[in-house]
Structure formats: structure tokens, C-alpha cells
Design a binder for these strands. Structure first.
Lengths: 196, 196, 196, 196
DNA sequence: AATGAATGAGGGTTCATTCAT
DNA sequence: CATGAATGAACCCTCATTCAT
């Protein structure tokens, strides 16, 4: 393993440790000493990789947004019709959160905390861009209503997050039927239905 | 002023102080000493009214949910047609958050923090119930799609919150046009459009 | 009830409350607020009767020493022979502590705390005097060894306290046999056995 | 100095600081901040070595009991006759307290405080065992009265403690004569004097 | 680069005492 | 006299960060 890979591995271990602890106990309930122990490194070591606890949290956010974006780009079959691609994308996003519940909780805590203000990618990460690009395409081609792209992408994103949270908290069981209904609700909201 | 009113006043002062500070600095960045100073009481006094910092935060959440619910119930003219009432309600909710931005930020931090787990009203406060009741009525009368009432009310609620946050962060300017569009997006998503 | 009696009653209630709480939780674990609540008075009221917490504790000590002395004086049949009177006295003292375990615990905490230094009756209360007087009589009449009276009375007193504590902590079960043995141990230690 | 020795040194410094302060001001009058300052460490450092203030106090008790036991074992010349050994042991114990008055005060505060209840070695430390063993030997060989060993050892121990406290408070001056008298008092109390 | 003991400011909380009612 | 809400100093403890090894 190269030197760089070793560093990358260690960073990942610290990220993983942080993610899990924040999910369980929140930012405040996650001391650096615990992060270190769970990551299998010394407390001081973390400070070789990250300037401060804040910097670590923010870096982790960026890292996770990037990882999610990667996965969302996979398997978008552009030969399919637009509506089908929308449903695919929406559900893929939803299921990503189901598979990575700690990521979801981390995101939600993060964007609703003072950290977010200090985050350079605030609202402009690759993930949001992917959704925005796709929706803009739909507007240009007349499949979707005309609306500020950013606005629409945030609404769509929010619908995914909300649904995943509902499912995970168990407040409402989301079966395949409900899932389809929610996706349909979003689609009905944004699709161009002029003439009806 | 009666003894009870004095107590109520003091509780309100503590609530107001907490609300403002949490909005600016988050839960962790809001020491009790500051809450006390801003409320014009001694640190120890807070503990006559609330068992702990956690208890204070949770009580504040309940209090604010109740206050918002009160306001949402006002002026619902039941003689109007259902769709109009929906748009009215949605916009009223939205504007409430614009007038009370610190409440919005507080809610969002709260529901995405470990506090929420320990909150007895978790997902079952009067505010959610008002929305749910209204939507259920719409489903029964055939104005809306059939969907799990809880699910739908959370989605609608989330659309309001998301819109208000977009507006307040200034990421997208929400003019009256955009506002109408978003409300329409939600309405189109939930309205019964079978036959089209 | 006269005014004075009312005051006496209230003082007694405060004393009783303090005694019980100190026994359970120690001085440090006994806040004035709890003393007040258990005594059925307001916190401020205590300060009408006692200058401070320290003063209360010290007054309680004096009060209890006096009460115990009273009881020890009762039933000392001076017509009996000296040794019998000694055994009677020793056992009476012992049983007093068994009947009033909280008094015993209070005494022991008190005399081993910094409070004791500030106690005017430090080592000179009526209770010690009764014992000392009785022992001096024994020395004068030749029943007991010659020894500094104060020293002997403290040793005897300590034997009673120690025995009672052993019994109450259950470290050693003190049956009537053991009790007799201990009293005998003390008697053999102090009695004039010259000539043997 | 090895790492372990450094740790041991630091623990000792904290112990010494605590011992001195508790002696002067009692447990409650001994804040951790002072313990730290007197020990020449930061407040937080203490918590690397002890879980809490309670844990520190309890650990100190165990440590001191062990130290005292060590010293008591030294120089017990088993070739001497039993009574001489008894007097030697008793006086050695007594003088240990004179040389280490803060230890005596600490012990007495400790065993009469709620801490003692939570102490794992409660009444079963090496020090008590040494005394008990010696007394049991005396009973087996017929030098001492038959009595529950635990009971007798507590009584003897208590006589030492009481004497030392008398001496140190200056209530009674204990000269070599008085010392001999007290040791004799104990010996006369426990020795087998059947036949007289 | 890695360690982890040490730091010490700052946090939440308690509680003896006061004083307006 | 009695009340008990209010005070605020002082407590124990945590934890982000540093630095000698």
C-alpha cells in the first residue's frame, strides 16, 4: 500500500468512526477521544489529518455527499423515457438512505446545525447538482413545469429525505405501495400537466 | 399581576432567551449562563422552572408547537371550497415561519437532534394533528388521493418547512409567484386527479 | 400551647428532620431545602431558629447529647454494688444507641467532622461528665485502677460506641453473650486488680 | 524514571494533596480544584487517574490502609513472649497514628461517612486482618479470653484509635505512663484471667 | 508520523442564604 | 412570624486541543 493509501485508509477509519458516533449521540455527544478510540488511532493523530473537530465534521459531510453522488450517477439509463428515469432516480436516492441510515441522520443533523453555515459546499454539492441537471433537462424538454431549478431540486430532494426519515423512524410503514405513492405525489407535483 | 402570571412571564422570558440563543448558536453553543443572563434571571432560577437544560429545550419545543397550532387554527373559513382552504392553510403555515424564523430553526435543529427521541410529543403534536385532520377530511370527501394520512401530512408539512428554509437562507428568492408554484406543486401532488 | 411551646415544637421538627437526613445521606448530602420539606416548614423558616446550617447541626448535637444524658441518669440505683452499677450503666448506654441508631450515626459523623472543632461543648458535655463522675467515684473508692478520669471515661465511652456500631453494621452479631463479654472486657480493663 | 513510576508518582502527589486537604477541611471542604493545585497538576488530570472524587477518596483509603499494614508487619519479633508482642504491636499502631495524624483523621472521617458503605474493603482490609490473626493466635494458645475474633480485633483497634485521638486533640496528655496504662487496660480486658 | 498524558477553560448544576410579600 | 422564589458563588466534571516523547 502506498503512503497515500495508508493516509486515505486512516482518514476513512476516522470518518467511519465519526459517522457512527454522531448518528448515535449527535455532534455534542461525540467527543474526539471516542472518535479516536473507535477509529483505532490516538487522539492526537486525528489532528494530523484534520485541523479541528469542526473541520473533521465538515470534511466528512463533503466526503459523504461525494460518495452519494457517485452512486446516484450509476445506472441512469438515458434511453428510457423521462418519467421512468425520474422514478428510478427518486427510488435509488431513497434506497441509498435506507442502506446508509447513519448518513441520512448525519446529513440532517449537519444541515440543521451551525456547522452548515461554515460549509463551503453549502447547498451546492455534486449531489444537488445531479438532481438539478436532471430536472432542468426535464423542464427544457417540456416534461416538467417551469420552475426555478434550484427550488424544484430542493423540493424533490426534500421529499426523498422526508420519506426515508418517516420510514426509518417507523412512524409510518412505507411499503412498496406507499413508496410508489410518494414518488407519484412528487411526480404529479412537478410534471407538466397543462391542458388538464 | 397574580403569582401564576408572574411565573408564566418568567417562563416566557426564559423560553424567549433560549429560542434566540439556540437559533444563533445551536444547542451546544447555548450555555445556561447565557440563557439566564439574556432572560434577566440568575442561573439557578432556571432550575426552579425546568429540571435541566434538556427539560427546558423539550418544554420549549412543546410550547412552540402549541403556539403555532393556535395560530394555524385561526381564520380557517370552512365555507370556502376545499382547494382554497388548502392554499390558505399552506401559505399561512409558510408565513408563520417567515415571521418566526427562530422558531423554524429551533424546530429543525430539534427534530434532527437526539432530543427529539426523548420528546413525548414526538410526531404527535397538535400542529401535526391539525394538518392531518384537514387532509383526512379531503380524502374522505374525494378531493385528495387516498394515502396514509400521517404520511401525507408529513409530506405536506415538510414542503412548508423546506420552502421556508429555502427562502430564509436566500438560496432561492421566493416571490409570490414561486410561492404559488410551490403550493401548486404540493396540491397537484396530493389532489385526486383520477380520470386525467 | 404557649408561644414558647410552639417554637419548641418547630425546633424539634427541624431537629428530627435533620437527624434522619444526616443519618441517611451525611451532612453534605443533606440540603436545607430537604430539611425544610421533611420538617414541614419553609426553607426560610429554619433561619428564624438557627443562624446557619452549621449552627443547626451544632445545636442538634448539643440537644441530642443532653437528651441522652437525661436518660442515662435514670434508674441508677446507688444502693447496688459498684460493679453491678457499672454493668448496668454500660448496657444502658449501649441499648440507647440501639434504640436510637440515627443518633449514633449522627454523633459519629459529627465528632469526626470539622464541625466538632467549632462545637463549644467539645468533649465536655453532660453525658461525658456523668460517665466521668461515676468512674471517679469508683477510683476514689478503690474499685477501679488509678487513671486520668477523662482518659478512662473516653475509653469506656468509646467501647460502647464501637460495640453499638459493630452490632448495627452487622459485621458481628452481638448476642447477649457477646454483650456481656464486651462489658466484661471493659470492666476487666479498668477494675482494680492489684494483688492478682 | 519509567512511565509506570511517573504515573505512580503522580498518583502519590494527588493522594498526598487530598489527604492533607481532607484533614484540614473535611471531604466537603476539599474541592477538586484545590486538590489539583496542591498536587501541582491540572484539574482534569486527576480524572485520568480516578473516575470521580468519590473514587479518589475511596482509592486513597485503600492505599493508606495498605501502607499502614505494611508498617505494622515490620519488626514483629515472634520469639518474644505473647504479651510483649501485644504491647509492641499496640504501641506501634498507636505511634503510627501519631506520626501520621492526617491519616488518622482521614480514616475516622471516612469510616463515619457514607463513603464507607461504598468501599469494597469495608472492614476487611489487611490491617484489620493482621490484628485479627494475631489475636486469634493468642486465643488458640490460651493467652486470651475466648471471644469472637472480629469483635475483639475491632475493640482493640478502636482502643488504639481512641487513644491517638485523645492525644492529638490534647484533651488529655498521654505521657509514656498513660500510654502504658491504656495498653494495660486493653490487655487486662482481653487476657485470659480465669482462675483469679 | 503517531502517541496519549496533560491541560484548563467552560459547561451544567446545586444549594446555603436572603428578602419581598 | 412564615413563606419560597430568587440568587449566584462554587462545585464536579468534560473534552477539544497541545506537545514532549
Amino acid at each position: 500500500m502506498s503512503q497515500e493509501e495508508i493516509i486515505a485508509e486512516k482518514k476513512k477509519a476516522i470518518f467511519a468512526s465519526t459517522l457512527e458516533l454522531v448518528r448515535e449521540n449527535g455532534f455534542h455527544g461525540t467527543p474526539m477521544s471516542l472518535v479516536a478510540k473507535k477509529a483505532g488511532v490516538a487522539a492526537g493523530t486525528i489532528y494530523h489529518y484534520f485541523e479541528s473537530k469542526d473541520a473533521l465534521i465538515i470534511a466528512l459531510y463533503s466526503y459523504l455527499r461525494g460518495k452519494m453522488a457517485e452512486e446516484m450517477l450509476r445506472d441512469d439509463d438515458q434511453t428510457l423515457d423521462y418519467q421512468t428515469r425520474f422514478f428510478n432516480l427518486w427510488k435509488k436516492h431513497f434506497h441509498y438512505f435506507l442502506r446508509h441510515t447513519d448518513v441520512l441522520y448525519f446529513f440532517e443533523q449537519f444541515v440543521n446545525s451551525p456547522y452548515y453555515e461554515r460549509c463551503p459546499e453549502k447547498g451546492n454539492d455534486r449531489c444537488q447538482n445531479i438532481i438539478a441537471t436532471f430536472l432542468n433537462e426535464g423542464m427544457e424538454k417540456g416534461f416538467l413545469k417551469q420552475m426555478n431549478g434550484k427550488l424544484m431540486s430542493i423540493l424533490v430532494n426534500s421529499s426523498v429525505v422526508t420519506s426515508a426519515k418517516i420510514h426509518l423512524t417507523g412512524k409510518v410503514e412505507i411499503t412498496e405501495t406507499e413508496l410508489q405513492q410518494v414518488a407519484q405525489y412528487v411526480w404529479d407535483g412537478i410534471r407538466n400537466n397543462q391542458g388538464f
